[in-house]
Design a binder for these strands. Structure first.
Lengths: 221, 221
DNA sequence: TTGCTTTCTTAAGGCTTTCTTAAAAAGTTA
DNA sequence: TAACTTTTTAAGAAAGCCTTAAGAAAGCAA
């Protein structure tokens, strides 16, 4: 899960970034509204965590700008502004959730999972596909009830594709999901991970759309 | 907006129902888990507001049951259970938002709007032509529901013609669409691709306008 | 820290599909 | 029929993808 964290406080920001990373998020952490805007446009995030008190502009304006520019990424506002009116304003400007500082980390994680689940049209908290089961809360995977261990990138790739089971992903889009922008991966990582997943989960788990990219396939042989 | 309110407390229930109605929701108010289940199955709601302390069963079980039964309606839990652990449990069982009583009515309304907004973002348009379906977002094509795979140039050619179904294209115009300017293709590529498309999609998919070029035809034989 | 294990990244060679070309066959027009 | 256009076929070239393997990096345990 690729997350844009917008938070100017260095300590708090580091804390959240660490917590997210620990939950195997891929985190891009920026400290100003302008950076937030440019990152949100440059790459496709699964969720944006937005502080409102930023040094250069108000977080609400960042949000509004994003929505104006048709960036539909779910946004969770995380702020010290705690009045009812402020919450209503935030939500009505286009946020999907609103949490007040000080906040509880597990609750933040659970709310992010809920946003993600809704976004990917998942019905239940446990994601299934054929005989596969994924529990995003535990980062675990099983096939026919047997647990299978995946490396972090294998897991990310699979989860991302399972969240949009009919979509075709270009290699570039997948690289964008798997890596931070300052990490230039110049070679065939995606092919290699696809190969690993096929080895572990069966040949047909991922289909190749030649000249275009990859698409989730079936779990049967 | 059609809302299912599940709340056994008469006073509080009435208050919420009134507030919702005032915001021009169409409210169905039930007081037990069993009623909640049967209503949620019988009709398509835009959102469900769920109390957890119900007389006949726990709200969490209602929620789990709904998700098991493939009811995707967004659920907002509204309860007195306020610990972090309880929130995490609620969200991870499949809720989309979680509010603690006593709560603020405007905030509830704003959260409902946020859920609704997210829900109503629709998916990509699909182009149809006769019995063909093209999903440009996924670069996929099917005929009578059967997926058909095209090579990149075949796909480009077809999509270009389908976007202008009545226009007649000269060979030169099509070459120009398929290739960069610095790519001098000196031979009969277009003819070859037309031939491929006819083979895959039926003779009449492309008509020959003799001496001029090609035009989209019909998908029937 | 050190050493051990797992995971990541890169590159190269082989394999498969698609592209391009050319030439023969078929069709159309005058 | 002659002249011309379009279709079909086939084969070598090019591009795209898969697989393997090895060194680098990261994570973990003592």
């Amino acid at each position: 899960m690729k997350t844009l964290l917008v938070e100017d406080d260095p300590l708090l920001g580091q804390g959240i970034a660490d917590a997210l990373t620990y939950q195997s998020h891929l985190v891009e952490w920026v400290k100003t509204g302008l950076h937030a805007l440019s990152f949100a446009h440059a790459s496709q995030f699964d969720v944006i965590i937005l502080d409102l008190g930023l040094p250069d502009m108000d977080g609400l304006d960042v949000l509004q700008q994003l929505r104006n520019d048709n960036v539909l990424t779910p946004v969770l506002i995380l702020t010290a502004r705690s009045t009812s009116g402020e919450k209503v304003t935030g939500l009505d400007r286009g946020a999907d959730d609103y949490m007040v500082k000080p906040f509880d980390v597990p609750e933040l994680m659970a709310r992010l999972r809920a946003l993600q689940r809704r976004e990917s049209q998942q019905k239940s908290p446990i994601i299934t596909h054929g005989n596969l089961e994924i529990d995003p809360a535990n980062l675990s995977l099983s096939k026919n009830g047997e647990p299978i261990s995946l490396s972090r990138h294998e897991y990310d790739l699979l989860l991302h594709m399972i969240n949009r089971p009919t979509q075709v992903f270009s290699r570039e889009a997948l690289v964008d999901k798997l890596y931070n922008w300052d990490n230039d991966v110049s070679s065939n990582t995606v092919e290699v991970y696809v190969h690993h997943l096929r080895k572990k989960l069966g040949k047909h788990i991922i289909k190749t759309i030649r000249g275009i990219g990859y698409q989730l396939g079936s779990t049967s042989e």
